[in-house]
Amino acid sequence: MLRERVAELVAKASGGELAAADVLAASCGLPALGLNSLAYLRLIDLVETEFDCDVDLDGGYLDTLDGLVEHIAGQLK
């Protein structure tokens, strides 16, 4: 469920260039999907607002959907 929601946020951050289904199905990292710097920043804002958590940019988890989901899940505990 969390994974699906984060994928939706990725799609929203991309300004509609990515569909949540594509994000969920992708086997590559988020930059390889075409997420640019601006979209990344939007994504972090969205994640922090939605889950009331802090996204530390020094973590490597930002590169993939699963890494991001895992990080958020850890923050929510």
Binding site: P31, L35, S37, D63
Partner: peptide, 11 residues
Amino acid sequence: LAARHGVTTSS
């Protein structure tokens, strides 16, 4: 390089 290392071309 960006695709290989999971970063943006800006980076």
